[in-house]
Design a protein around this nucleic acid. Structure first.
Lengths: 166, 166
DNA sequence: TGACAATAACCGTTCCCACAACTATCCTTG
DNA sequence: CAAGGATAGTTGTGGGAACGGTTATTGTCA
């Protein structure tokens, strides 16, 4: 038995390397976990995973709010995307934007009461979702997985290969 | 030291659960691996990761070709998206579409010589990329990671929770 | 055979994400 | 204080992914 990976993507020939198998496995796993959560968010709260993320960030920021740049850092997204993500979220009445009076280049984003309510209604569902998605592994294997993923990130080396010169 | 995860997303408060930490870690890792590869594909071959995937599938299919539905299964995408992905790939001259003569509802996709050349130029780069991205873990930890990811997929339970009835 | 369901793919729409180019504002320094 | 550079966001554009609904074709069966 070659694990479920081959059947899940109807792969017939072997992977070229262990690295390739892990890469595909990683992408597939992330994808399979995201799907049901995205669907749930859309149908019950009418928001996307990105918007959920944004609201979590804004709730964490409290009355201070966050600038677009700070949000971009935490989202691992680029600034331009945050602008439009914010646009969509404002339109739903879940966030508010206020231009800074000190530095008029800066725009601060805040969560609205409606946004807070939306998050609160989802808080319990997140826990259930994560439990369903990953709880079966148990603390031991979850810890291993977390550490291996951290090691993978730490071990990355630049690509395309740099500094090849003499 | 709380691993790099906290600093990578500027997270200040602890995660609500180990499951949440693993979930975020998984998403972040997948994201960090995808980025450089996507950039490389775009700048050197002018294609997207999805198009690369499509070409790999078509190369594997050889002269038989693949129907849209078969491709969708292997891509973990929906049919409508494959239609348009194919459109863009055809426009680049990397694939060809032929309507089946037996069952005229069916459309078969094939890779062109130009598409094959494109893939061949990338074959070596893939190996280098994967080595740079994940090679540092070594076979032992890569094997563990693959198995843990497979276990995570196998352990998933439906969400939203179904079949709660007696 | 003629209605009707099933199947394969496509279209319209929306949101997400990446890059490049741009505007507005602020800071520096001669 | 007036360039000129740096910084913060926005806009333009295009590929990608999800959903629902639609068209074309085939299969079924009364």
């Amino acid at each position: 038995m070659k694990s479920d990976l081959y059947t899940e993507i109807r792969q017939t020939r072997p992977f070229r390397s262990l690295e390739e198998e892990v890469y595909v496995s990683l992408r597939l796993t992330a994808q399979l976990l995201d799907e049901p959560w995205a669907r749930y968010l859309r149908t019950t709260a009418g928001i996307s995973p990105s918007q959920y993320n944004l609201l979590r960030i804004l709730r964490g920021a409290g009355v201070e709010g966050r600038t677009m740049g700070e949000i971009a850092e935490r989202m691992i997204n680029r600034d331009p995307d945050v602008t439009r993500l914010a646009d969509r979220t404002l339109k739903l009445g879940l966030a508010r934007r206020i231009r800074d009076t000190e530095d008029r280049r800066v725009v601060n984003l805040f969560i609205t009461p409606k946004g807070l309510e939306t998050l609160e209604r989802l808080d319990e569902a997140v826990d259930v979702f994560l439990k369903q998605a990953l709880g079966a592994l148990g603390p031991g294997r979850l810890g291993q997985l977390r550490d291996l993923l951290a090691a993978a990130r730490a071990g990355r080396r630049p690509f395309p290969v740099e500094g090849q010169a003499t």
